[in-house]
Amino acid sequence: MEILVLVKRVPATDSQIKPAADGKSYDPAGLEFVLNPYDEHAVEEALKTKAAKEGTVTVLTVGGKEAQKDLRTCLAMGADKAVLLDPGQEFDGKSLSEALAAKVKELAPEIVFCGKQSVDNDDAQIGPRLAGLLAWSCLTDAASLEIGDGTWTGQRDIEGAKEVVEGKLPAVISCSKGLNEPRYPNLKGIMAAKKKPLEEGSAELGAPALTVIALTPPPARPEPTIVGEGPDAVDALMDKLKNEAKVL
């Protein structure tokens, strides 16, 4: 089974995000970049699928040269080959998913894994948009997955419950954190990754449909009040909650 994994390089989750001078993007200075945390689960699920169904795992990202590092991480985890597509310009969910759909048609995988969202823009659009463009089935926010013969069954978290979903292959699966435990690349994997193919090209982006107006810091929180110490402070807290916040 041909398996494709879509990944993205993003600022680490402990980053402080500051607007850049243009007021529309974030300032990357001093930030540590990592493989999007949900994408680790996508790579892991792809490797598990390969173990069960054979085939090859290709990992793909749209980004700059620096994303080679993240692709090598995926190769070290066990992916077979990597593709890096240079976008050449900013993209949104529409223009990126259109570029990905074109590439998926060329690579012809039977299943595509991605993270449920990238932790930069938190859009959660690429998986279901891609499935829509390809007219494939889609499981988003997957918390479990079993692949059968031309079919799949999975679970996803919904508000206060889980949905059991059945679908047909080919499919796009967007992966959540509960799905699996991503492996760490070992030394052998890291050495092997250096020799695995990493193809470079450019992304054929579609026309965008979003224009960024501004990136701003979040609204400030009110000044904090320490009401006291230990259990004795409970009465003072209750007074604040009842009479000031009026939430009780």
């Binding site: 995000i17 607007p19 930069d120 823009n121 938190d122 979003l210 960024v212 107006i213 990136l215 701003t216």
Partner: peptide
């Protein structure tokens, strides 16, 4: 909210 609320992004959306 972007970056889980560490910043906010405003867009004009077309379609």
């Amino acid at each position: 909210p972007v970056f889980a609320g560490k910043a906010y992004k405003s867009y004009t959306v077309t379609g």
